[in-house]
Amino acid sequence: MRPIVPTVALLCCFMLASFTGSSQPGNGNSSDRMFLRAKLYNAAGYILDGNAVAFDDDFSNGYDRDDAVKMMNPGENLGMRRDGRTLAIEARNVVTANDTIYYDLRNLSIQTYEIKFAAKYMHTVGLVAVLKDNFTGIQTPVSLTDSTFFFFTVTANPASKAFDRLTLSFLSPMAAAVLPVKFVSTTVKRNSGSNSISWVVAEEMHITHYNVERSTDGRSFKTVGRVAAGGNASGSAAYDYTDVLTDASLVFYRITGQDKDGRHNYSKIVQTDAAIAAASLSSWPNPLTGPQLQVKISGVAQGNYQLALTSMLGQKVYSSTQRIIQGTGLLSISLPAQVVNGQYLLSLTGEDGSKLQQQLIIKR
């Protein structure tokens, strides 16, 4: 038997046991009433919280006296959202295709959790239950005849502890077997002034397009781009999208695969690395009085760059190719002796055409 954390969760578990026993709300015969219970455990195996759903046509799908509002724990909470309320016990009609349970997770910490799902008398509904993790994009079948153990991890990414991370949908066997698309991988790479998002998919079933969605907090997303699908139903396909940004703030991305019937799947949520400093080019001494010029390059993407010195008349008096690693470079340049005194433009040009410039005065 697993240990129990002595909090409100203990009372909740007693309520669930009572609710799923012989004395239950509703007016009909409860001997074969359908139930789905969920219990939340921490990494040490302690039970933290739980909830239950009862399915019977004697119940309504709205909030009423047969439902129980959740008493919040000081620690982790696993409730369900219905009509603007968070419930510990929900009584609703017999489940039908496309019904959804919206779980509500609160006060999670960085660790791996386990949820145990236990169904009772639900094998007769002829449906398939699928748990969607909106953070990872992974969909997990939940047995309606036996127990299912689902593990999920909360990380430093704030999106991993979103209250609406988990939803459970009831689908027809055909709909569950033909999900619109399977996301194999999703990555993001930060560049200077843009982010490159790439994803690989398999089993594109009637997918029409992919929406690229961006968020600043990992919770609220908006569509920033659209990529047409290739329609490769049997193999894999790779896609990419460049999101041009005016700042270097931390951002999150996810991809939505949309099919012609309006169904969609989410990829896992990915986030950019720490913000890149604004790109800059500086040199010293300035004015230059000797043959050696020190050049510092910061905040640029890794790659090859052309460093050039051009007179005010447009004559290029110096040019070299420089390889910049990890966005920063410190160079020592020996200028030719024939470069005369005057005003010059020092420039750094990237492979993508981006350019940094600084005025340089030579007095030798």
Rank of each mutant, 00 (worst) to 15 (best):
T272C: 00
K296R: 13
A278I: 10
Y305E: 09
V317G: 05
M312F: 09
V270H: 01
G303L: 04
I297M: 03
R323M: 09
A301Y: 05
T328N: 15
Y318I: 02
D273F: 05
I297S: 00
L307W: 00
V300I: 15
Q271R: 07
L281K: 03
L293R: 04
K316C: 15
L293T: 05
Q326C: 08
S298K: 00
V270D: 02
Q271C: 04
S283D: 09
S311P: 08
P287N: 06
A277Q: 13
Q326V: 03
I269S: 01
Y318N: 04
Q271H: 08
A277I: 09
A275N: 12
T310R: 07
A308P: 06
G290Q: 14
T328F: 04
V300W: 02
I297G: 00
Q315W: 05
V270W: 02
K296H: 08
T328S: 12
S320C: 11
V300Q: 05
Q315C: 07
L281N: 02
A275E: 15
Q315V: 13
I297C: 03
G290C: 11
G314F: 05
I276C: 11
D273H: 07
K316S: 14
Q292G: 10
K316G: 10
I325P: 00
K296C: 07
S280K: 00
Q271F: 03
G327Y: 02
L309V: 06
A277E: 15
G314I: 05
N304H: 12
D273K: 07
G314V: 07
T321W: 07
S320M: 11
Q326Y: 07
I269A: 01
Q306K: 12
S319W: 05
G314S: 08
Y305M: 08
G327C: 01
V300L: 07
V270Y: 00
Y318S: 04
G314E: 09
A274T: 10
R323W: 05
L309G: 06
A279F: 01
G290F: 10
P291D: 13
L288G: 08
G314M: 06
V300S: 07
Y305N: 06
Q302N: 13
M312A: 14
M312L: 14
A274N: 14
P291S: 14
G290K: 13
P287S: 09
Q294C: 12
L313A: 15
G303F: 03
N286F: 07
S298C: 10
P285I: 09
W284A: 15
L281E: 05
P291L: 11
